[in-house]
Design a protein around this nucleic acid. Sequence first.
DNA 1: CGCTTGACCGGGAGCGGCTCCCGGTTTTTA
DNA 2: TAAAAACCGGGAGCCGCTCCCGGTCAAGCG
Lengths: 134, 134
Amino acid sequence: MYTMKQACEATGLSYETLKYYCKQGLVPNVKRDAANRRCFDDRDIRWIRDLVCLRNCGMGIDDMKRYIALCMQGLESIPERQEILAGHRAKLVERIEELQGYVAYIDHKDELYRDILAGKRPYVSNLIDCSNQG
Amino acid sequence: MYTMKQACEATGLSYETLKYYCKQGLVPNVKRDAANRRCFDDRDIRWIRDLVCLRNCGMGIDDMKRYIALCMQGLESIPERQEILAGHRAKLVERIEELQGYVAYIDHKDELYRDILAGKRPYVSNLIDCSNQG
DNA sequence: CGCTTGACCGGGAGCGGCTCCCGGTTTTTA
DNA sequence: TAAAAACCGGGAGCCGCTCCCGGTCAAGCG
């Protein structure tokens, strides 16, 4: 049995976040002790760790609820689950490419700044001196 | 001269977002016509495009304000600007790596599901059947 | 035995960066 | 000339937390 604190340590969630997930009904049937404090068992901990995986995949709370419902239907819902995950995968890949573009932008900007400091380029005051906005 | 709508088209921002940036004081000294509607000139458009670059680099509104202030100080603030951008670059790279990990996780999960459907693995009901949870 | 400390409770407010909605004004179009 | 579109300022709502509140209970200490 785990207290809130132990469950946080075991799952990597903050106290507030775990409480929030409980409030949202993402962790069903949590037992309580005589003092109304939550008692998590190993199954709950595994469940919460799964929630963290879903969140990491980019799922929002409502999507997580839907996914959980699918999982509880059993094996037949696997294809649908695969579809959902594939959708999130695509979004992740898209986002990665976007971020890589921004890294490239910063690198370009840094080069520009270096050239200006080295006197190889005139300094044109224009906020961040974007010459590659296009 | 650009109306709000034209400025949105020219910068890729939504009407609401551009209005929000104006409200936040990120677009200084915007002119108004007789009917109190904003009139953007080319310089404003370039400025707004710069704001979009900063946002894409991962900056929050307050950081953008600070960065803008630095830019207005002129050439001498370039090293400080480079530092700030380097910090955001590092964050971007970190985030990219994180997201790549989640993609790998989904791929692993998909393989698991495929094995289950192919009968190569037993189906163990455990939310998303994580067997790779650290 | 009391007392402090600390974990915990439910409920609610705050956050950032938008996004949506409101009622009202002006401008453009048919 | 009337309807549609763009715009205005101000304010509420969104999401996924995070922080704060006043109160309860339990363990550890002297």
